[in-house]
C-alpha cells in the first residue's frame, strides 16, 4: 500500500486554478521524482500535501488517513518533513538553532546529530554562525539537515540541486540516498540527470495535471515522453 497518495487533487490559489487533477502514489521506502516544466504545479503539489495551499478537491491520503483538511503544523506532526526550495533556512538563527528548532520532541537533535554530521561534515564546523553567513550549498545542506532532526516518515524535497555546484550536487545526492534507506522521499527535481539517478519512480506534471508516471528505468529510455514533457531533458 502507498504511504502517500493523491487522487484527483485540485488546488486554487486565490482565483487561479493551479492543480487541476493530480494523481500520484508514493510507496513506503521509495524515492519518487516529480518532474515537469516550470509552472507545472510541482511546488504547489508539495505545498498542498503540507496543507499550506489546502486542496480544493480530491483526496490526499497519508498512511491510510485523509490529511487534506489538516493545518500545516498538524501535517508536519504526522511525520512529514518539507525541504522548501531556495535555501529556506531561518536567516536570523544560527546553524545550531536552525537545527534545534526542528525538534519535535526534546532529544530529537541529540539523536540525529551524528547522522547529520556524517552527511554534512561542514555543518559541525559552522554550528554557531548565523544562517545568513552560509554559502548557497551550505544553506541547502542545512535545509535538508533540518528535515532530518525529527523522525520523519516522508520527506518532501523541493529542487535540492538548484543553483549548486556539481560537486555539491553529488554530495546532496549521496545524502538523499542515505536518507532514503529509512525515509520515503518525494523529490521535485528539474535536473533530469539527478532525478533519474536517485528515483525509482517518477510522475510528470503538465499544467497542473499528472500526465505520466511509472518506473524511472522505463522513462530513461523513453525519449518521446522526455521530449514531450521535459523539453530537451
Amino acid at each position: 500500500m502507498s504511504l502517500l497518495s493523491l487522487e484527483a487533487v485540485n488546488t486554487h490559489i486565490g482565483q487561479y486554478h493551479i492543480l487541476q487533477g493530480v494523481d500520484l502514489e508514493v510507496g513506503a521506502g521509495e524515492i519518487v521524482a516529480m518532474l515537469g516544466r516550470n509552472g507545472a504545479g510541482k511546488t504547489t503539489t508539495l505545498k498542498t500535501i503540507m496543507g499550506l495551499h489546502p486542496r480544493t478537491g480530491g483526496t490526499v491520503t497519508f498512511d491510510g488517513e485523509e490529511i487534506g483538511e489538516l493545518r500545516p503544523y498538524e501535517v508536519a506532526s504526522l511525520g512529514i518533513g518539507y525541504v522548501p526550495e531556495n535555501r529556506a533556512i531561518f536567516a536570523d538563527l544560527s546553524v545550531e538553532e536552525n537545527l534545534r528548532i526542528a525538534e519535535r520532541e526534546r532529544g530529537d537533535l541529540a539523536r540525529s546529530i551524528d547522522f547529520i554530521h556524517d552527511l554534512f561534515p561542514d555543518l559541525a564546523r559552522l554550528a554557531e554562525l548565523p544562517g545568513t553567513s552560509l554559502s548557497g550549498g551550505q544553506q541547502q545542506m542545512l535545509a535538508v539537515a533540518r528535515a532530518l532532526v525529527p523522525e520523519n516518515r516522508l520527506l518532501l524535497i523541493d529542487e535540492p540541486s538548484e543553483g549548486l555546484a556539481p560537486v555539491i550536487i553529488e554530495q546532496m545526492m549521496e545524502a538523499i540516498r542515505s536518507i532514503s534507506s529509512d525515509t520515503t522521499v518525494l523529490l521535485v527535481e528539474q535536473n533530469f540527470v539527478v532525478a533519474s539517478r536517485l528515483a525509482q519512480q517518477y510522475v510528470i506534471l503538465e499544467e497542473g495535471r499528472s500526465v505520466a508516471g511509472g518506473a524511472m528505468a522505463d522513462l530513461v529510455d523513453d525519449d518521446e515522453t522526455i521530449n514531450r514533457y521535459l523539453g530537451a531533458g
Binding site: 503540507m50 499550506l52 493545518r71 500545516p72 503544523y73 501535517v75 508536519a76 506532526s77 518539507y82 522548501p84 529556506a88 531561518f90 536567516a91 536570523d92 538563527l93 538553532e97 534545534r100 528548532i101 526542528a102 525538534e103 519535535r104 533540518r146 525529527p150
Partner: peptide
C-alpha cells in the same frame, strides 16, 4: 526555544508552520 520560534515566525511563518509549530 520559544523565543527562537518567535524569531523563526518573523523570518518566515510558513516554514515555522511546516516544521510543526502552531505559530
Amino acid at each position: 526555544p520559544t523565543g527562537k520560534v518567535l524569531v523563526a515566525v518573523r523570518d518566515n511563518e510558513d516554514r515555522a508552520l511546516m516544521l510543526g509549530y502552531s505559530t
